[in-house]
């Protein structure tokens, strides 16, 4: 098989095969790149909660907690409750948690939902297991092949690697990260 034909086939087939993986790492990369601005995995909302009547630890059982959650429009969210200290009630919800100071009757509620798409791609990006790690290593090698083979897809003319446009874009793509590296190192 001619080298050019092999180059073309590799670029095409590996490109098809790893299209999905490319999207996974691209979306996840964007999400994790902005980790200081947002939580890429969960949508977290915080609320304040106030009890109408004072209550002591001895008066609280599961029924009481479920009733309180119903008042908060959190029916069927009860998972468990416990007392981290004698004056604090903590309730675990299926989608969050609630912590109330029994002395002040004030508390905070946190609702947590998985961020659609991003939770799933980030889960994969974090290497959920040994086999995934090997598969993503293969993906990275494939991307090296896709990148190098891409340089030689066009045989001649200004858009080829030996043409002014192809050469310019390739060199720019190397110099820009170098400059950024030197700026930040």
């Amino acid at each position: 098989m001619k080298l050019r034909k092999l180059n073309y086939i590799l670029h095409r087939d590996l490109g098809y095969l790893f299209f999905g993986m490319s999207l996974i790492y691209a979306f996840s990369g964007i999400a994790l790149n902005h980790i200081r601005e947002w939580n890429p995995n969960y949508i977290i909302r915080n609320y304040t909660v106030t009890l109408h009547d004072t209550v002591t630890k001895d008066q609280i059982d599961k029924e009481w907690v479920v009733s309180m959650l119903n008042d908060l429009d959190l029916k069927n969210e009860y998972k468990k409750h416990y007392f981290p200290s004698s004056g604090v009630l903590k309730v675990f919800l299926y989608h969050g948690n609630l912590e109330i100071n029994l002395t002040t009757c004030k508390g905070a509620m946190e609702t947590i939902k998985k961020r659609p798409l991003f939770y799933q791609v980030n889960f994969l990006h974090y290497n959920p297991g040994v086999w995934w790690k090997w598969f993503s290593d293969i993906f990275c090698v494939a991307w090296i092949i896709i990148s190098i083979s891409g340089l030689f897809m066009i045989k001649s003319g200004k858009n080829s690697i030996t043409g002014w446009k192809g050469a310019l874009f390739t060199i720019a793509g190397i110099i820009i990260p170098l400059i950024l590296f030197l700026l930040y190192v």
Binding site: N41, Y94, N97, I112, F123, Y126, N127, P128, G129
Partner: peptide
């Protein structure tokens, strides 16, 4: 670890 790369927040209370 390598075997369990991440914990689901829904484990809280379990």
């Amino acid at each position: 670890s390598n075997q369990i790369g991440k914990f689901d927040v829904n484990l809280e209370g379990s």
